[in-house]
């Protein structure tokens, strides 16, 4: 068909005009697929031929020494950083490299930052309200009202993250651990397909860590969860499958026992408990 016929054909919408609303296609298994991704900052290769596949409903831990490219990888998936080369697919239908941050967020990828970032001047309830998967455009947001089903959904999440009694407190007065849970709760409000969690237990007490492990394992299955973590004890307590990153590429992948007996991994983590 010539280009003219292509444009003259009026019984269909041009491909570039169709909105990307179609549901995430996970019929082939993987929900996230990174292939041959490369990123360099001022000549420093932060990500070097990275290949990574996350299956739907999986709980995956990603470990690696400082500078292994863990956070950069998260930045690429969420659209904050554009890779130099490579491809990143969400399901087998959505090319993440062609979308910006809000589009990727509304597609169902939620991200938890290293440092807990909640809206401190708003209450716990309001934090969850803003995170809810609703119409995020200006005028609908201005006219939004609190519907009973929204309230139920928020209460449900408050129950899951264990902050029910603190719902009307300002998020600013929460403890460090509680802020982390609130942030995970905010991600859950978006009904994400994929949760990216960056160092969830940094600075947590022993009990808080246990609660967090419970929370994350309870989420897996309903949604895919990718956890980036330094704390080996914590990774051991939740991990089914672990990926080790080193200098921007995958060094080893497998169960925690497999990985921690891998000679390459031991070399990289030499002197560290692994």
């Amino acid at each position: 068909m010539s280009l003219f016929e292509e444009f003259a054909n009026r019984d269909r919408v041009f491909e570039f005009l169709t909105p990307v609303e179609s549901p995430v296609d996970v019929r082939h298994g993987p929900i996230l697929y990174l292939e041959d991704v490369n990123v360099s900052f001022d000549g420093f290769k932060a990500i070097n031929n990275l290949n990574l596949t996350i299956d739907d409903g999986e709980l995956r831990c990603i470990i690696g020494p400082n500078g292994a490219g863990k956070t950069t990888m998260m930045d690429i998936i969420t659209g904050k950083t554009a890779p130099d080369t490579g491809s990143v697919w969400f399901g087998s239908r959505h090319n993440l490299l062609r979308m910006n941050e809000p589009e990727i967020a509304s597609l169902g990828i939620g991200r938890k930052f290293q440092k807990p970032t909640v809206f401190e001047a708003l209450t716990v309830f309001e934090n969850l309200e803003l995170a809810m998967a609703t119409d995020k455009r200006i005028i609908p947001t201005l006219r939004a009202i609190m519907r009973p089903e929204y309230r139920e959904r928020i209460d449900e999440v408050l129950e899951t993250i264990g902050l029910k009694d603190l719902r009307d407190n300002l998020a600013g007065i929460l403890s460090h651990g509680q802020k982390q849970w609130l942030e995970i709760g905010m991600l859950l409000m978006q009904k994400p397909r994929l949760l990216l969690v960056d160092e969830p237990v940094a600075g947590m007490t022993e009990q808080e860590m246990e609660r967090t492990a419970e929370l994350l394992t309870s989420l897996a299955g309903k949604q895919s969860v990718v956890v980036v973590e330094h704390d080996m004890g914590f990774v051991r307590s939740i991990a089914r499958k672990v990926t080790v990153l080193h200098q921007g590429s995958v060094l080893a992948e497998g169960s925690m026992d497999q990985v921690s007996n891998d000679p390459e991994v031991i070399k990289v983590y030499l002197g560290e408990e692994a």
Partner: peptide, 28 residues
């Protein structure tokens, strides 16, 4: 006092977080 007001406060205090929640901060 509307939800948009709370989104404004959210953009004021943690712009990146608001963006990752799916709000178009620049449009707000």
């Amino acid at each position: 006092t509307s939800k948009l007001g709370r989104v404004s406060v959210a953009c004021r205090d943690a712009e990146a977080r608001a963006r990752f929640l799916g709000y178009r901060v620049e449009r707000v």
